[in-house]
Amino acid sequence: MRTLTEGARGLGLRPEFVDTLLELPAVKGLDFLEVAPENWMQIGGRKRDQLDRIADRYPLVAHGLSLSIADTEPLNTAFLRDVARFLDDYGIAIYSDHLSAARDSTGYLYDLLPVPRRAENLPYLAGRIAQVQDFTGRRLVLENISAYYRYPGEMTEGAFFAELVARSGCGILLDINNAYVNARNHGTDADAFLRALPSEAIVYYHIAGHLELADGFLLDTHGTPVADAVMALAGKAWALHGARPLLLERDNKVPALDVLLADLGYIATAVDEGRHVLA
């Protein structure tokens, strides 16, 4: 397994640019790629061929969408076995998913759904995380989602994450854009969220763009350039928690690879140099 340095920069692997990437020698300034295991595992043909060739050139991290760690059904162990096999096959050390649910008692819903953040739910979630870590043989890393709904009277996201980390030993994938989107949409304090997180648990950062609707509501679309305010928040995260591998997500309206790489370089350098830390 290949490890990432704190200053590593990565992109989410997209079909839109995978052919271009394969035509190039290893790209300077692109240190790793992130793949959603669900989109690549148990798949053959062109996609499998592409992934095999990409894996020969770049370290991979796995970022899942379908683990549904926080749902209230039994864990999908068949799915977990497939994920574990995929991680082993490609020598992937970091496996992350979202602190969310994707399934109810009827079945899968195919989205990242918020779950109630209550102290009494923490032992259950910590137990589920332990099960996943046993299955995969890896520390589970969980990302803070953009949540468009808040349950009445629930804990703050920062306090909930911190307590969950303390109980389970899971890692955190800190998504700066999601932290910003949640703070704007719900009128909460993004700085306080960042301060509540234990630095040592943060494994890497996500950064992405969002869409602002006419009424000011923000949607986490991954379809626009990163907003200055999100860059500023990233600077604060760096100042608080230190450098970590940084990954730029772009899943919609994906520009050409050279544009994405230029964006990634600009963001990483600016955040690293503290140019976007607001007073």
Partner: peptide, 25 residues
Amino acid sequence: MSSPETAAPPAMAMEFAGFCRAART
């Protein structure tokens, strides 16, 4: 570390089920 819980707390299950029911319907 806490011992693993095998079943979700009933209140959590009920609260989440209500949220999902709304999203489905």
